[in-house]
Write a protein that binds this DNA or RNA. Structure first.
Ligand SMILES: [Mn+2]
Ligand SMILES: [Mn+2]
Ligand SMILES: [Zn+2]
Ligand SMILES: [Zn+2]
Lengths: 137, 137
DNA sequence: ATGCTGATGCAACCAGGTTGCAAAGTTTAT
DNA sequence: ATAAACTTTGCAACCTGGTTGCATCAGCAT
């Protein structure tokens, strides 16, 4: 288990500290994306700033990606093994208005957009809001 | 001028107060979307809470729509005359990473997405980040 | 004029995010 | 082995955008 975690960290050139292993473990166990405040709650006693910087490190090294779902807090989720966060790697996200969970729709790539002349695309954030299958009536 | 403004307010069932006229005037003159903090700066002396509530009223009545571009602050821009903010009315937004302006790409509708089974779509926020034509090198 | 309703202004508050700095831990050089 | 250099952590403080409670004010109906 720990081996697998450390391997993941190593593959993204992140030094495996105790804190980082714990955070990555939490992220791995998540089925939906998690925010910094939510992450704090996963620990008995953990420093917000450290978690914040851990997430930043993870994101900079493309171990995780951030999602702006329009709620108060940014969510984070693991990148796939092969992900380099290029526009063509991106997928759609889904925010359920009932359970408030944010899903990575890994199988749904962000559609290609034809921008006006002389607009250069670098990144895309596409979030669909609605009701998820768990909350479906 | 004022006639036009009041007409717009009236068409969305918003009582035309002095404050609202001023705010709508600012929004009309904007070429790019504007945030609450930016809106505050447009006035010599204006109350944040009032502006906040004005924007909320405008949004609830579909005179404006909000844009979550991933920056610290939510942006607002006028809806088109015919807009009812249904999913099929939505367009793509563009955040320039150089000038930091957020554009409504009114001519680019948000592409239709096929969600997984039993996911119901209610709304979509699609923001492209990159370099705009003004900042294009 | 009087009273009702909604809009405004002010102040205080809240939460997420961010930073400075010193202590602790790790790596590298001598 | 020891010291120096660098990285990570923990704590506290701070900033900012957003939000709310409440008293006052303006407009409209009676
Ligand atoms: Mn995702
Ligand atoms: Mn728009
Ligand atoms: Zn749900
Ligand atoms: Zn630009």
């Amino acid at each position: 288990m720990k081996d697998r975690i450390d391997e993941q960290l190593h593959s993204r050139n992140i030094k495996p500290t105790a804190m980082r292993e714990l955070v990555l473990k939490v992220l791995t166990d998540q089925k939906t994306a998690i925010s910094l405040p939510e992450l704090e709650l996963k620990f008995e006693k953990a420093d917000k700033a450290t978690l914040y910087r851990t997430l930043k490190t993870f994101e900079e090294n493309k171990l995780i990606h951030s999602i702006n779902d329009g709620t108060a807090s940014v969510k984070y989720a693991l990148c796939r093994e092969s992900c380099e966060c290029y526009p063509e790697d991106l997928h759609v996200h889904f925010l359920c208005t009932v359970c408030e969970h944010t899903y990575c729709l890994n199988d749904i790539p962000v559609p290609k957009i034809n921008l006006p002349a002389k607009f250069r695309l670098e990144n895309v954030n596409m979030v669909v809001k609605g009701v998820c299958s768990n909350c479906y009536t």
